[in-house]
């Protein structure tokens, strides 16, 4: 299942990456699952996506909770709590 993943602000900086296309393994179907899957890359990934880090996530540009499911073609984003205004 192919998806697009985006990273913003401090997460983007830590990972040194803004976006990537990826092919999800069959056993990864939720935001929480994707977060662990990416964290398993180790190094900055383990650090930036650690459970202890307060992160927000969006699927197709709507904010969603960790248990939200992902389907083929989705745009998923990881970012810190927002600070606009």
């Amino acid at each position: 299942m192919k998806i697009r993943v985006l990273y913003f602000a401090s997460v983007r900086e830590k990972l040194g990456r803004h976006a990537e296309e990826m092919d999800l393994p069959a056993d990864v179907s939720t935001i929480a699952g994707l977060r662990s899957h990416l964290g398993a890359r180790g190094g900055v990934w383990a650090d930036a996506l650690a459970d202890s880090k307060l992160l927000r996530t969006a699927v197709n540009q709507d904010m969603v909770p960790p248990q939200a499911t992902i389907k083929a073609g989705d745009e998923v984003a990881f970012f810190p709590p927002v600070t606009g205004g």
């Binding site: 913003f8 602000a9 970012f79 927002v82 600070t83 606009g84 205004g85």
Partner: peptide, 10 residues
């Protein structure tokens, strides 16, 4: 807007 719009300040 301050809690839901995806803006980040550095």
């Amino acid at each position: 807007l301050k809690t839901r719009a995806p803006f980040w300040k550095k």
